[in-house]
């Protein structure tokens, strides 16, 4: 961890009103849960669509995508990355710092509204389990999006393809793809921590933990490796 990089990354991510980009989704999530409750619906009825349908398929991955591609991808995009790369720092230190910032911000912006939703569903254990799930998801997603940012010039697009097509569409059609779906790991882990009939994951608990770990470690290692041999493309000869 490097505090200077962390500070600059945080300011780039949240400064100058960019923080407001991250606010609507969490508010939407709490708003839906609150409205359902206000209309007297039982949590068993609205829990699944709000927590899974909105929380796990939209709020968590989209915030992770904005943040995860923002911590490093935007600096690569505008060229400011050279200021950080031209310092005698181990590349792993740069990646770990970026990952920590991404996990903290994503976990916070997705975890807090999920916690509130858990409370609105009248279950404190569920609320805490959702926070844990948000951070596990934030870790795996951030590592993935961070690696994509170093690997390609279109990290947002590729990230969207993973979230929308792989997890969203294929995950519902073919059960095999669930084994490689961070969303499924999060569901399973939350359900294991606080069993309810709202969340039924399609992956086993050990697989979820192992695979979330594999995603995180593998993608982080890949990002470090790629940053070591990061070539700056010349604009003029």
């Amino acid at each position: 961890m490097n505090p200077t990089i962390a500070r600059i990354t945080l300011r780039g991510l949240l400064g100058r009103r960019r923080i407001w980009l991250l606010v609507p989704l969490p508010i939407l999530l709490i708003g839906f849960a609150w409205a359902a409750r206000a209309f007297g619906e039982p949590p068993a009825e609205w829990g699944e669509p709000v927590i899974v349908g909105l929380g796990f398929t939209a709020v968590l991955p989209v915030i992770a995508l904005i943040v995860g591609t923002g911590v490093l991808g935007s600096e690569i995009d505008d060229g400011t990355i050279t200021h950080i790369l031209s310092k005698p720092l181990p590349r792993s230190e740069i990646v770990f710092t970026k990952l920590a910032v991404a996990v903290g911000v994503t976990g916070g912006f997705a975890g807090v509204p999920l916690f509130v939703v858990g409370l609105l569903a009248d279950s404190t254990p569920l609320a805490f389990a959702l926070v844990v799930g948000a951070f596990v998801g934030a870790l795996a997603y951030s590592a993935l999006f961070l690696a994509i940012s170093v690997l390609t010039r279109r990290p947002v697009l590729l990230g969207l393809v993973y979230v929308v097509l792989w997890e969203g569409l294929l995950g519902n059609i073919m059960s095999g793809t669930a084994k490689l779906s961070i969303q499924q790991y999060v569901r399973t882990i939350v359900d294991w921590l606080a069993p309810t009939d709202i969340l039924a994951g399609s992956v086993s608990v050990p697989v979820s933990f192992v695979m979330a770990g594999v995603f995180t470690v593998g993608m982080t290692a890949l990002a470090v490796q790629k940053l070591r041999t990061f070539a700056v493309a010349g604009e003029t000869g």
């Binding site: 050279t82 070591r228 700056v232 604009e235």
Partner: peptide, 21 residues
């Protein structure tokens, strides 16, 4: 592939990208 080289190297690249904030 040798970040330690930057101890003796100072760079001013052509792109004037800086963290403007």
């Amino acid at each position: 592939r040798n970040p330690d080289v930057y101890r003796t190297l100072g760079l001013v690249s052509e792109r004037e990208a800086v963290h403007g904030f």
